[in-house]
C-alpha cells in the first residue's frame, strides 16, 4: 500500500490526535485576531440597547451543561448589558437538567458585579415541565405557571413580579438555547403575543434560524462561540468566547487542511485505480 493509499484510508485516531493538539496549543500560546461583528449580532445588541432603562426583560437559560462553552458566554454578556442599563431581568429555563442551577449561578455572578438585588432587580423563575404549556400559559399569567420562584418564594412576595403579569409587561425576550425551543418562542410567544424575541444559539442550530431573522420574527441572532465572541466584543466583556476563538480557528483550519489532503489522496488513488472506481 503506497503513501496515498494509506492517506486515503487514514486511521481516524490520527485525526482525533490532531484535533486535540489544535485545541490545546492555543491555550499555551495566545494568537489574537480581531473579531468581526455580524449584522445579526449587531441587530440583537441594538435591540436590547434601544430599550428604555429599567425595562423588564426575559432572559432564558434553555441549554444543557454540555453546551456551556458556546452558550454561557452569551448569557454572561447579555446580563452585563442588561444590568448596566438597569434593566429588570427575569430568568427562566425549559431545561430540567441543570437549567435552574446554571441560571442561578450565572445571574448571581453578574448581579453581584452591578450590586443588583434579588427580587427587586432580577428573579429566577426556574424550571417547569412541558414547555408548550409554560410558554402559552405565561401569555395569560406568569404566576399561574410559576406560583413561586426557583428558591420557593411566592411571586407575590417579590417586588419585581408585582408589576409583571404576562408577556404584555415584558419588553424583550432574549433566548439563549442549544435546542429547538427557539421555534416555540417564535411560533407561540412572538407570533401570538407579539413580544420581540432575539436568540443566541449553538453553531449547529443557528443556520436554521436565518429565515426567521429575515422574516422579522427573530430580532437578531448569535451563532455558536463566534456569535458569543461577537456579543462579548459589542458589550465590552472579555470573556471565554473571545479566548476560545483561537482554538476554534485552529480546528477549523485543521479540518480544511484534512479536507484538502483527503481530496488530493482521492484524486491520486483514483487515477491509479481508474475513473469511476470509488474506494
Amino acid at each position: 500500500m503506497g503513501f496515498w493509499d494509506k492517506l486515503a484510508n487514514l486511521d481516524r485516531r490520527w485525526i482525533y490526535l490532531s484535533v486535540a493538539i489544535s485545541v490545546i496549543f492555543p491555550m499555551l500560546f495566545v494568537i489574537k485576531f480581531p473579531v468581526e461583528i455580524s449584522p445579526e449580532a449587531r441587530q440583537l445588541y441594538n435591540a436590547v440597547e434601544s430599550l428604555p432603562d429599567s425595562s423588564v426583560v426575559f432572559l432564558t437559560f434553555d441549554y444543557y451543561p454540555s453546551t456551556l462553552a458556546e452558550t454561557e458566554p452569551m448569557s454572561i454578556a447579555a446580563l452585563n448589558q442588561m444590568f448596566r442599563k438597569n434593566m429588570k431581568v427575569i430568568t427562566m429555563t425549559t431545561i430540567p437538567l441543570g437549567g435552574p442551577s446554571i441560571a442561578e449561578r450565572v445571574t448571581r455572578m453578574v448581579a453581584e458585579k452591578y450590586n443588583k438585588v434579588y427580587g427587586v432587580d432580577y428573579v429566577n423563575l426556574g424550571y417547569k415541565a412541558n414547555y408548550v404549556a409554560v410558554l402559552k400559559g405565561m401569555g395569560s399569567s406568569i404566576e399561574s405557571i410559576y406560583p413561586s420562584d426557583n428558591r420557593g418564594t411566592p411571586l407575590k412576595d417579590l417586588p419585581l413580579m408585582n408589576k409583571v403579569k404576562n408577556y404584555n409587561d415584558i419588553k424583550f425576550i432574549y433566548v439563549v438555547a442549544d435546542n429547538a425551543i427557539v421555534d416555540y418562542w417564535i411560533s407561540i410567544v412572538n407570533a401570538q403575543y407579539k413580544t420581540p424575541v432575539g436568540a443566541g444559539m449553538t453553531a449547529v442550530m443557528a443556520p436554521k434560524m436565518y429565515p426567521f431573522v429575515q422574516a422579522g420574527q427573530l430580532t437578531g441572532l448569535l451563532g455558536g462561540m463566534k456569535g458569543a465572541a461577537e456579543y462579548e466584543e459589542l458589550v465590552g466583556v472579555k470573556g471565554t468566547a473571545i479566548r476560545g476563538m483561537d482554538a476554534q480557528s485552529l480546528v477549523h483550519l485543521l479540518i480544511i487542511g484534512f479536507v484538502i489532503l483527503g481530496n488530493i489522496s482521492y484524486f491520486v488513488t483514483r487515477k491509479k485505480t481508474g475513473p469511476g472506481v470509488m474506494k
Binding site: T67, V259, L261
Partner: peptide
C-alpha cells in the same frame, strides 16, 4: 461529563469531513 460528550463532536466532525468531503 456532558460537556465532554458534546466536545467529542469536534473530533467526529473532523473525521466525517475527511471521509465525506470528496470532490466526486
Amino acid at each position: 461529563m456532558m460537556a465532554t460528550m458534546f466536545a467529542m463532536l469536534a473530533f467526529y466532525i473532523a473525521s466525517a469531513a475527511y471521509r465525506a468531503f470528496r470532490a466526486r
